[in-house]
């Protein structure tokens, strides 16, 4: 198996080489690069390796930039010394990461995982992983306020004033904590992107609520929950079956 090592600290490379050969003696190191530019150049001039071991923080920036510059079809295992975001992303996606200093048993497990993964669309998985990491590393800006119509007037409503969002027929609304109703142009899916998941939760297809508006929670048939919100709603509010576990977890955060 041919491996490309992307790592900017010489000592870390030495250590990684040792660990690699102790885990799998058939591994052949095809190249070692230490920067974004070097790696892109290497990938342009060589056949894609069977695996890339890639550090996240490189001499000239973060290694994610490589994927914007060149199409990488090799599977990648990221290595990082300290990164919560990466950890999060890799939990969602099935490709592995290793914390430095790399432990032989972790590397071995990652290699096994990769061998199992091979042949089933690794590159698409990788693309979604890179996208995910990009999103997580960028500081997320949540919507602070909304501009909405109130009759002929335009009104600014602070996000924190919103008790919940709901859809009724083909229209979407939100209700403020002081019980005013407004129509919005965004879909429920848009809203989910725009608001901080610590404060808002999508309980069903048609309801997206803030934590502060929950007044009462009761069990409901079909393993669902029924909520009483403040301000009160016209229709009954149900937490759909598949959302119940996540909802409870969110409440207890």
């Amino acid at each position: 198996m041919k491996v490309l090592i992307v790592e900017d600290e010489e000592l870390a490379v030495k250590k990684l080489l040792k660990t690699l050969s102790s885990v799998d003696s058939t591994i052949e190191v095809a190249g070692i690069t230490d920067s974004i530019n070097d790696t892109v150049e290497w990938l342009q001039n060589n056949t894609m390796p069977d695996l890339i071991l890639m550090d996240i923080e490189l001499a000239d920036g973060q290694s994610f930039a490589i994927f914007d510059l060149i199409k990488v079809t090799s599977p990648v295992i990221f290595t990082t010394s300290y990164d919560e975001y990466a950890l999060k992303a890799f939990k969602v996606n099935s490709i592995d990461y290793l914390l430095k200093p790399v432990q032989p048993e972790d590397l071995e497990a990652a290699l096994t995982k990769l061998k199992n993964l091979r042949g089933d669309g690794t590159s698409t998985a990788l693309q979604s992983l890179v996208k995910e990491l990009h999103q997580q590393l960028a500081p997320k800006d949540y919507r602070k306020r909304f501009l909405v119509k109130n009759g002929q007037k335009l009104v600014i409503v602070e996000s924190q004033e919103v008790a919940y969002f709901y859809s009724d027929g083909r229209l979407n609304f939100f209700r403020t904590k002081d019980n005013k109703n407004f129509i919005i142009d965004y879909t429920m899916d848009d809203m989910e992107e725009m608001l901080n998941p610590d404060d808002y939760f999508r309980i069903s297809r048609s309801f997206f609520i803030s934590i502060s508006c929950v007044k009462k929670i009761e069990d409901y048939f079909g393993n669902r929950l029924i909520l009483q919100l403040f301000p009160a709603t016209d229709k009954e509010v149900l937490v759909s079956r598949e959302k119940v576990t996540a909802f409870k977890k969110w409440l207890g955060k």
């Binding site: 600290e9 000592l11 870390a12 030495k14 250590k15 040792k18 010394s81 300290y82 430095k100 200093p101």
Partner: peptide
Amino acid sequence: NPHFLFNCFNTLSSLISE
């Protein structure tokens, strides 16, 4: 700041064997 410290630990780990 754990970054600097962890990076140093990595270096140290390599040095111990090198």
